[in-house]
Amino acid sequence: MTSIADIGAELDTPRADLPAGEQAARLLELGEGVLEHWARARELEPTDEEREGFRLLALHRQGAKGEPSFNACRETCRELAYHYNLVCSDAAHPEVAKRLEMMRLVAMHLYLFVSGKMQVDQLGEFCCASKPLRLAAQT
C-alpha cells in the first residue's frame, strides 16, 4: 500500500509522459488509495465494492458511515470520477491536458482534505499504521 505521503508526492508530479487514459486511471487509483488510508485508520477493511461503476465512490460511502463530516469530500470524489470519464471518453480531445490537470487538482484536494482530517482526528500523522502504534504506546 502506497503511503499517504507518497500519494501526495506523486500527485505533485504530473506524469505527462503516460498516455492520457493511463494518467487518468492512475489519478483515480491514487484517489482510492487516499480513501483506503482513511478506512484503515478507522480500523475498517477498505471495500472492494463499486458504486455507480467506481470503487472510489464505494470507498467514500464506506468512509462517511458514522462520520457525516466526511461528506465534505463527497463531491470531490464525484468530480474525480467525472473527470476520469471525461478523459477516457475522448483521450484525443484537444483539451485533454487541461482536463488531466484539473483531475490532478481534484485528486490533490481529496488528498489534502483526508490527510488533514486524519491529522486533526489524530488518526495518523505519517501513515495510517500510526494509530495502532500510538494506542499500543498508551496502554
Binding site: 463531491e75 470531490t76 467525472y82 473527470h83 481534484v106 484536494h109 489534502l112 490527510s115 488533514g116 491529522q119
Partner: peptide, 23 residues
C-alpha cells in the same frame, strides 16, 4: 469549476494553518 463545494479548511485555519493554506 470542479471544487465549488470543496472544503477550504476554514474550520482549521488557526489550529492547522498549513493544511488550510494548502487546501
Amino acid at each position: 469549476f470542479p471544487l465549488k463545494t470543496a472544503c477550504c479548511g476554514g474550520a482549521h485555519t488557526l489550529s492547522d494553518s498549513d493544511t488550510s493554506t494548502l487546501l
